[in-house]
Amino acid sequence: MKRLLAAAALTLGLYGIAQAAIDTYEFANDAQRERFTQLTKELRCPKCQNQDIADSNAPIAADLRREIHRMLGEGQSNQQIVEFMVDRYGDFVRYKPPVNARTWLLWYGPYVLLGGGLLVLGVIVLRRRRVENAAVADVQLSEQERARLDALLNSTSAEKTSND
């Protein structure tokens, strides 16, 4: 019985591997293969969102790999291929989108938020210091309290000198 269960588990595990698509493309030379690898690592899968099209098993990623292979075969440059993908899927398809008016928030937004957070923190700290300083400055001793404080301070210093 144990052997039957082990065989069933192994068969189910291998079934998932057998279903994985393996793309095989023929290239004119190694430079073209290198360009294909670079482009598929540089472009993001529109469906998976955080995976490049080289590693994605999504059908759209397979289509994009085929399209890149076709365009490389036609002799198009890397820039032309990337521009085609950006025109079709937007700047999202690039892992490193260009800095322009549409992507300003993406590039500089975190720094703006960090600066704003530090500014708010600074304002809070300064307000607390002002409140503490104002509370200390507002403490005014009456004449009777001052005389008692002086007497205590003098008696303490007199005790210290006599003990030494």
Rank of each mutant, 00 (worst) to 15 (best):
Q80D: 06
M85I: 01
Y95H: 11
T103L: 09
V86H: 02
R94I: 06
V120C: 07
V112W: 06
Y89C: 02
W104M: 09
F84E: 08
L105T: 13
G117A: 13
W107F: 13
E83Y: 09
G109E: 13
V112E: 01
K96C: 06
Q79R: 15
P110H: 14
G115P: 00
G90P: 10
Q80Y: 05
D91Y: 06
W107K: 11
V123G: 06
P97F: 00
A101K: 15
T103D: 07
Q79A: 15
Y95F: 15
V112T: 03
F84K: 03
R88L: 08
Y108L: 12
M85L: 13
V93M: 06
R88Y: 11
T103N: 13
D91F: 04
F92L: 08
L113M: 12
N78A: 13
D91R: 08
G90Q: 07
W104H: 07
V112P: 04
V82N: 00
W107S: 09
D87S: 09
G116L: 15
F84Y: 05
V99T: 06
I81D: 03
W107C: 01
N100S: 03
L119F: 14
R102D: 09
Q79L: 13
L121A: 11
V112S: 04
G117Q: 00
V99E: 06
N78T: 05
G122D: 00
A101F: 12
G116Q: 12
Y108W: 14
R102S: 14
R88W: 09
P110R: 14
T103G: 10
L118Y: 08
